[in-house]
Simulated assay, not measured.
Amino acid sequence: MIEFKVNGDFIPMIQLLKATNLVQTGGEAQIVVDEGEVKYNGQVDYRKRLKVKAGDIVEFNGETIKVI
């Protein structure tokens, strides 16, 4: 599990995927979100600009990110 400390109130989903090095570029992050490869709190979510906040869990490509 990856623990990611968010600075501020939230981080957009595509920026979170880049910041945790699960994707190389913002374009790649948008593609994986569009294709339904990302789960947000247990549910597939297609929103690229989704505001991920402390306490949320994001799953992608066999990795789990806990936002703290």
Rank of each mutant, 00 (worst) to 15 (best):
residue 27 G to Y: 02
residue 43 Q to M: 09
residue 59 E to C: 13
residue 15 Q to L: 13
residue 43 Q to C: 04
residue 58 V to I: 15
residue 2 I to T: 05
residue 11 I to C: 08
residue 5 K to Q: 08
residue 37 E to K: 11
residue 42 G to Q: 07
residue 1 M to V: 11
residue 50 L to G: 04
residue 33 V to W: 00
residue 63 E to S: 13
residue 61 N to W: 00
residue 51 K to F: 04
residue 18 K to L: 13
residue 27 G to P: 00
residue 31 I to F: 04
residue 46 Y to A: 03
residue 41 N to R: 12
residue 38 V to F: 02
residue 26 G to V: 12
residue 18 K to G: 05
residue 56 D to F: 07
residue 11 I to S: 01
residue 56 D to E: 07
residue 66 K to A: 11
residue 26 G to N: 14
residue 68 I to K: 13
residue 12 P to V: 12
residue 40 Y to L: 14
residue 49 R to G: 15
residue 67 V to Y: 00
residue 30 Q to R: 15
residue 14 I to L: 11
residue 8 G to T: 12
residue 55 G to D: 09
residue 16 L to I: 08
residue 14 I to P: 00
residue 44 V to S: 08
residue 7 N to Q: 14
residue 55 G to S: 08
residue 55 G to N: 10
residue 13 M to T: 09
residue 49 R to N: 15
residue 64 T to L: 04
residue 10 F to C: 10
residue 63 E to R: 13
residue 63 E to D: 14
residue 57 I to R: 13
residue 3 E to D: 10
residue 43 Q to I: 09
residue 30 Q to G: 14
residue 60 F to T: 02
residue 41 N to F: 07
residue 36 G to E: 07
residue 38 V to A: 03
residue 45 D to L: 12
residue 28 E to N: 05
residue 44 V to I: 15
residue 14 I to W: 06
residue 1 M to E: 09
residue 16 L to P: 05
residue 21 N to S: 15
residue 54 A to T: 14
residue 12 P to C: 05
residue 25 T to H: 11
residue 50 L to A: 08
residue 46 Y to S: 06
residue 4 F to H: 14
residue 25 T to G: 09
residue 9 D to H: 03
residue 61 N to S: 14
residue 2 I to S: 02
residue 11 I to L: 14
residue 49 R to A: 15
residue 44 V to P: 00
residue 42 G to A: 10
residue 59 E to D: 11
residue 22 L to W: 03
residue 65 I to V: 13
residue 21 N to C: 08
residue 63 E to I: 05
residue 39 K to V: 01
residue 57 I to C: 10
residue 45 D to Q: 08
residue 28 E to R: 06
residue 28 E to Y: 03
residue 8 G to E: 06
residue 24 Q to G: 13
residue 4 F to A: 10
residue 68 I to F: 10
residue 51 K to T: 09
residue 29 A to E: 04
residue 38 V to M: 03
residue 15 Q to N: 13
residue 17 L to A: 03
residue 37 E to R: 12
residue 41 N to V: 12
residue 14 I to M: 07
residue 18 K to E: 01
residue 22 L to M: 11
residue 26 G to H: 13
residue 16 L to Q: 01
residue 6 V to H: 01
residue 26 G to D: 14
residue 18 K to C: 08
residue 17 L to I: 07
residue 34 D to V: 02
residue 12 P to E: 15
residue 38 V to P: 00
residue 12 P to H: 07
residue 62 G to I: 09
residue 6 V to A: 11
residue 52 V to S: 01
residue 38 V to I: 05
residue 20 T to E: 08
residue 31 I to P: 00
residue 27 G to R: 02
residue 18 K to Q: 10
residue 21 N to V: 03
residue 27 G to K: 01
residue 63 E to K: 15
residue 66 K to M: 08
residue 29 A to D: 09
residue 21 N to Q: 12
residue 25 T to P: 09
residue 56 D to V: 07
residue 7 N to A: 13
residue 41 N to L: 07
